[in-house]
Design a protein around this nucleic acid. Sequence first.
DNA 1: ATTTTTCTACTTCAAATGTAGTATATCAAT
DNA 2: ATTGATATACTACATTTGAAGTAGAAAAAT
Lengths: 123, 123
Amino acid sequence: MKRLPDTELEVLKALWTLGPDTARAQLEEALVPFGWAPNTVNTYLKRLEEKGFVSVRREGKSNRYTPLVSREEYLAFDSQAVLSRLYGSSPRNFVAALARNGLKQEELDDLQALLDELNGGRN
Amino acid sequence: MKRLPDTELEVLKALWTLGPDTARAQLEEALVPFGWAPNTVNTYLKRLEEKGFVSVRREGKSNRYTPLVSREEYLAFDSQAVLSRLYGSSPRNFVAALARNGLKQEELDDLQALLDELNGGRN
DNA sequence: ATTTTTCTACTTCAAATGTAGTATATCAAT
DNA sequence: ATTGATATACTACATTTGAAGTAGAAAAAT
């Protein structure tokens, strides 16, 4: 797997949210905030298709798009990639870097809860 | 600040390790593992300079390079950027994604230790 | 059947990135 | 002062990314 450029990733994120077999119009709707020209989403979808991240199905006049890589799969890959790029593959280092900008108490609590959960499956 | 491309980042990482006022030869030495042609490091250093990440000082025939952005600064920025790109700015989500690939007990312990430390400064 | 509309596929273009070659300036040696 | 060695600066080029225009096919309307 390879990391996606920002724009393609945004399209894929929208597709994850909208689910499988989503029409182009839906995608464009969801991506309005980016202020792209209409055809731009088209371009990114095509590239995602070429890279094997989405499949296209013809339905009469229009297309339906389906993600071939799930959010979970991609995130698992991406998080790993991020870690090895700069953090010596150490989760701790990453969180430590974050902490430099300050972490809210809530974020700390969330992390703690997750750790407890992960540790729970230990025995 | 802007995220750096992989190659430039590798050069900057080497420079962080070697410290300020490092000679080109040292950098090239450290970057041998990448198997780049000699002049390639040169190009990346030049780009890092243009982007304001390193400063260059002339010393006789050769150059000395110094990082203008510290590792800590950059990591703080980068970790934040990563989080907002895909993890809804939630540290928890990031670690959860990592956990999908499995975290070693040691990594969990390290994280726990860091959390304890971060929470320590709470009162 | 012809025209119009509407999608989609194909093409284009500039900037950034990965990578390296060539030209030039500078220092050292004669 | 001239020549030779070296390090650096400048240029080059393919690929990728960000972004969008144009041409062509399919469907709808007349």
